[in-house]
Amino acid sequence: MRTSLVRLVTGLAVVAIALVAALSLTGGVAAAQPAERAPGAAPAPTAQPGTAPRGTAPRIQIVDGAAKPAAAPAAGTPAPRIEDPRARDVINSNGPAMAVLFWIFALGMIGGAIFVITRRNMIAAVMGMVGTFFAVAGLYMMLYASFLAVIQMLVYAGAIMVLFVFVIMILNRPEDEPWGLVGLPGKILAGIALAYLTFRLGSLLASVKAPADALLAPPPVVVPPGAPTDAPTLYDWGSTAGVGWNLFNEYLFPFEAVSILLLVAVVGAIAIARPLKADDDDAAEGDAAAGEAS
């Protein structure tokens, strides 16, 4: 038990260190970008509908009437601008450092997931789940989904796992028999299926031919006119502003539907978990549970 705990803590530390490394690498891209782009003449982005050519202006500036009165003829009604952050790939996104990060995250994720489904101790399973979620957040970071990586850590590793820990503490039952009872044919069948699945996945992975620009900096994102430009990477692909622009323009109705869904889920959870006061033989226990809850 103690050795497994030590292994778990070591694994979590490795995942955390790798996550910090990924974050610092991504931050390094953002920090190194203006210093490198400023002296050279920036090539004009390929797609810029509705805006005037900006010549050698730094690519980060938002085009609006106040900032560039001469270059923008339609100063009164500035159109959405399209950035091209493809040139921001200062670090080599296809290089061996990224490969090392990917394999660390992959091992942390799969190891944590196997940890979850093999532990008898449920708190240990939750800890493996947290490690899995952090590794998944690191993978989101590698896919330039920085906003979703943070949301993954906040919602999954934070809220949902705390909910699981609370319910484990409430139930407080040692698990008697973790595995389902299967006979020898079932085990043979499961072994064959697992071997087949592993073979298929391995052959698929071996046949992967990654394109040369597979994980370079992502395509442009639409920047709303008149938006603040405090941070140079504010409108990066997958940033909070980029996802929010997409979410509130194209997917506003699903967003509102999700809010209704969450409301229904909260009300339903309260209605289901409430002790049944009307039940006669369950009344004392329900009152006890209510006393515990309050």
């Binding site: 989904a145 906003f147 979703l148 949301i151 993954q152 919602v155 999954y156 809220a159 949902i160 909910l163 699981f164 994102v221 692909w237 997958g238 980029g242 996802v243 622009w245 997409n246 979410l247 194209e250 997917y251 699903p254 967003f255 999700v258 869904l261 969450l262 229904v264 889920a265 909260v266 339903g268 959870a269 289901i272």
Partner: peptide
């Protein structure tokens, strides 16, 4: 970027599913 919005919806649905 619409995939990110969809993933956000999936996370919200997962949270609701865990609560219920």
């Amino acid at each position: 970027v619409g995939g990110h919005s969809f993933a956000l919806v999936v996370i919200a649905v997962a949270a609701a599913e865990v609560a219920v």
